[in-house]
Design a protein around this nucleic acid. Sequence first.
DNA 1: GATGAATGAGGCTTCATTCAT
DNA 2: AATGAATGAAGCCTCATTCAT
Lengths: 192, 192, 192, 192
Amino acid sequence: MRSTDTNKIERVKEEALKLIVSKGYHGASIAEIAKAANVSDGYLYRHYVNKADLVKDIYRSKLKDFHDFIYELLDADLPFGELLKRLIAHLFVIAKREPETVQFIFMMIHDHDFDYPRSRLLALRDICTKLLERGKRDNTIGEKLTAEDVLIVVFSLPLKLIDARRKGVFTTREATSTDLDNITGICLNALR
Amino acid sequence: MRSTDTNKIERVKEEALKLIVSKGYHGASIAEIAKAANVSDGYLYRHYVNKADLVKDIYRSKLKDFHDFIYELLDADLPFGELLKRLIAHLFVIAKREPETVQFIFMMIHDHDFDYPRSRLLALRDICTKLLERGKRDNTIGEKLTAEDVLIVVFSLPLKLIDARRKGVFTTREATSTDLDNITGICLNALR
Amino acid sequence: MRSTDTNKIERVKEEALKLIVSKGYHGASIAEIAKAANVSDGYLYRHYVNKADLVKDIYRSKLKDFHDFIYELLDADLPFGELLKRLIAHLFVIAKREPETVQFIFMMIHDHDFDYPRSRLLALRDICTKLLERGKRDNTIGEKLTAEDVLIVVFSLPLKLIDARRKGVFTTREATSTDLDNITGICLNALR
Amino acid sequence: MRSTDTNKIERVKEEALKLIVSKGYHGASIAEIAKAANVSDGYLYRHYVNKADLVKDIYRSKLKDFHDFIYELLDADLPFGELLKRLIAHLFVIAKREPETVQFIFMMIHDHDFDYPRSRLLALRDICTKLLERGKRDNTIGEKLTAEDVLIVVFSLPLKLIDARRKGVFTTREATSTDLDNITGICLNALR
DNA sequence: GATGAATGAGGCTTCATTCAT
DNA sequence: AATGAATGAAGCCTCATTCAT
């Protein structure tokens, strides 16, 4: 999994992500990805055993980046409300700066062919549990709520909003800071 | 002249749904679907122009069933809280009785290759708008909330919970009436 | 091969001919032919063993009509020049009145999948031989020429001209009486 | 890196031509062609977008070879009679040496599914026009004749003779030099 | 390490034909 | 006699993967 030309494999991952987002996993062929990355068809097989392995790696690393960010937030010892706001703000910022990344994660989460990576699942559970503790400590989260509740509220609503906007369910208007406040408020209320 | 066996195409749709749920759209081949439905490979092409057309039809009809149910609820003129509870309860019941159906809808909603059918999109907007009105009339939904907020709360959280359970993110425990009450409460709070 | 509804099978033959001319033998499906003839898909199988059999029958009958016309001309005991002129004129008239018929014959003559029907081959040989005799009797055909020469001249040049016009090789201008005289002259010269 | 085996694609074209001649375009399947060429099924799709594209390429190149030969003849500045004789002789030689090639061209010219390639059509018109000029210059072609007349005489009669022999309309006897002289004489007379 | 030519399994789809009614 | 629902063989084509260079 080590490469001489670090750039190359990064290019592959980048183009793979972009193409998968725009054409779907099956729609993005190895040939097209390789061409976009200016790499030979066979190149990626020196790093990954197959196409799915490449995608899993991208998926895993994107999730890790996100989880790492949350861990940093958790380390900062903010009140839960503030923490949540920053978490969601982070999502919105990424959704704006690199929309493909958020869309990619959203796609993969729901893709039949890709499980949530085991290591990430453990991290996710851990994060939800810590968020729950933090919220309860601050009396921001209701006594009876569980980490699972945190999961479905904190990691569904914002992503779903971003996705709804992208698809134009009601509007394609770009998310504003008002939207950010609204969705944060909704999440906070939800966990009351 | 043989008369059309109306069961046949129903069998095809049923088996297609099941196989797609278990193996994904691309994983479920025409040959396999036909075999499971005890029908010839070419049979479905007498009803649909291609595989995607079949799947879209199933998708559309399942969504329609769901939307029809909600319209019935809306007609009943219940208070919003009760309406929401019944709506979510319905989802839970289906998720238990025909888990593939809910999973199928959940998959299709997030599938890159399938758009939300136009007619259903209009119905969905209409439903969210009506739910919003009802909630505001009852003072159950906050003044500033929008139909889009209703959308992401009412149609994301319960489905996401069902999906989380199926995947065993935290637990694979079957959803109980307590879970139902909890998630309803969360949704109600979210829309406060 | 007898039918109760003579019209029906005639309609089938007519539509088959038209569709084959416009879409080719493989492009014209039984379903489409049946639909155009307002007949069931299975209908033609009560008259012919298969699709090819239907087409052969149409082919044979169209050739027979043409051969019959030539035999009538031969009976009229005209000088060869006049005979040839009338023969070619007949082709031109049909090409104008029912262009599909001439095109159909032209297509079938050159189609890999359809042999010239045996009975028609014998008639064709006979016709060429009689034409040769007539021409030699009149001193219109050179001594050394053969029935085969008559064949390639009389039955190639006019049809090829009609085809070239249809395809617009040089022009798509409709064949005039001048064209008729020209091509007749060419054929006569060819056989000198 | 394996270098492209230039023989492979040539083998494919060769076998495709042979199989199409013997079984027709639709009768010659990709699988069979690939097998005959000792190549994988998918191989030809690395060179052509589909089956028709392969066949068009063969068609075009065979026509080009023939046209190139005629252009060489035209360059030689021979009297028209000699030029025509050599042209027809060339056809006879090829028909003997590689009978499939002539048959292939003859089939394609008359195939409903394949147009005469545009570039070849232009060349053909040019050739006929130049032949006409040459013939008129030598007083070998009548004043009133046109390039279209040259077309149907020069490019129909010899091919039709070859085809008639192959099919055994009158005889299957191989074309002799006498036949060559005869058909040349017929063509010359035709254009008088 | 890297390439890209070549493979071939497997998918979707068509359509001539059958046969129960 | 006629229908037309249903069949299924067979075709075309895609694309992840391999491996000689």
